[in-house]
């Protein structure tokens, strides 16, 4: 029971981190129709910026500054890159973000080198949060959950309760009408893209020291967040939330189970399970768990 509880908490905290990553991706996709291949690279940038800032002035300023920096870069990319490419259609945009991912990775190599950097959990968050019958649960995991839930609630409130949120929602389906009403739709796009990147950056700030900050970290999470967006339903924030928790828990529990099939243990195939889920879902329910559009 205690084991089950700890594993559930592990699954949820990992799932919430995945959600923070995929929420930006799915928002940008629903609004602009752009599947941003460089999204995970912004996650990596967040971690590296946080490493740099926390080495200079501490972790707490980094928690705010790094996502803002990443968001600013995201806006610049949208304003001077994507928007120019936009007129050539979605394929050009896709290729643009694809190339951008490589550029960011190489830039990281050049600036910070190819090895992992020494980005550590701050001392005040290092230690056990509580104990469940002999197992201790780290403070930092609790902190990760707290940040993710805060972000989730903030986005939800911003999208449903604020004026800009309403404009964004309207621009999702009827961009021309929104523009005709006098709203600056391109600027909304820029803000959303920057916001999505900032979310990825924030995930990098808290994921980079929980795990490892190295140039391969973007490539490591890249595929899994696409799976989440597809499984949840393209463009569905609630879907991404459910899919993140589902996949986080699925991977955690697959590790815990000692079942085996034809000599292969479930725990051995744990990392492949999300992809299996995606393939099955695409066959049987192409719009995803909570998606609205077909295919």
């Amino acid at each position: 029971m205690e084991f089950f509880l700890v594993q559930t908490l592990n699954g949820i905290s990992y799932g919430l981190l995945l959600f923070m990553l995929s929420s930006g991706l799915t928002l940008v996709f629903s609004l602009m129709g752009v599947l941003n291949f460089a999204h995970a690279s912004f996650y990596m940038l967040g971690a590296y910026f946080a490493f740099q800032v926390s080495a200079k002035i501490g972790f707490w300023p980094a928690l705010v500054a790094a996502p803002l920096l990443v968001g600013a870069i995201g806006m610049l990319v949208e304003r001077w890159g994507l928007r120019q490419v936009h007129k050539h259609g979605h394929v050009a945009e896709l290729l643009f973000t694809f190339g951008l991912a490589y550029l960011i990775e190489e830039a990281v190599h050049l600036i910070w080198g190819r090895s992992a950097v020494e980005y550590r959990v701050p001392a005040e968050l290092d230690g056990p949060l509580f104990r469940i019958i002999g197992s201790q649960y780290p403070i930092y995991r609790g902190f990760m959950m707290l940040v993710s839930v805060t972000v989730l609630v903030t986005i939800w409130l911003a999208l449903t309760r604020t004026r800009i949120g309403l404009v964004i929602q309207a621009a999702l389906t009827h961009p021309q009408t929104v523009e005709a009403l006098g709203h600056n739709v391109p600027r909304v796009f820029m803000l959303v893209f920057g916001g999505g990147c900032a979310l990825a950056g924030l995930a990098g700030v808290i994921g980079g020291n929980a795990f490892v900050t190295e140039p391969g970290m973007a490539a490591a999470v890249g595929p899994i967040i696409f799976v989440i967006v597809v499984v949840g339903g393209m463009g569905s924030l609630a879907g991404a939330f459910v899919a993140s928790l589902l996949i986080g828990c699925m991977q955690t529990f697959a590790v815990s189970l000692d079942w085996s099939l034809a000599g292969i243990k479930i725990s051995q195939v744990a990392p492949v399970l999300p992809y299996l889920l995606m393939v099955l879902l695409l066959i049987f329910r192409p719009k995803g768990l909570m998606g609205t559009r077909e295919g």
Binding site: F3, Q7, N10, V221, F253, V255, S256, K265, S267, P271
Partner: peptide, 21 residues
């Protein structure tokens, strides 16, 4: 007795919980 994929696991917490149990 567990095997995990080479260089693909970023979160070892589930394995650790299992070892503990």
């Amino acid at each position: 007795d567990d095997l995990h994929p080479l260089g693909k696991v970023s979160d070892f917490a589930p394995y650790v919980a299992k070892i503990k149990a």
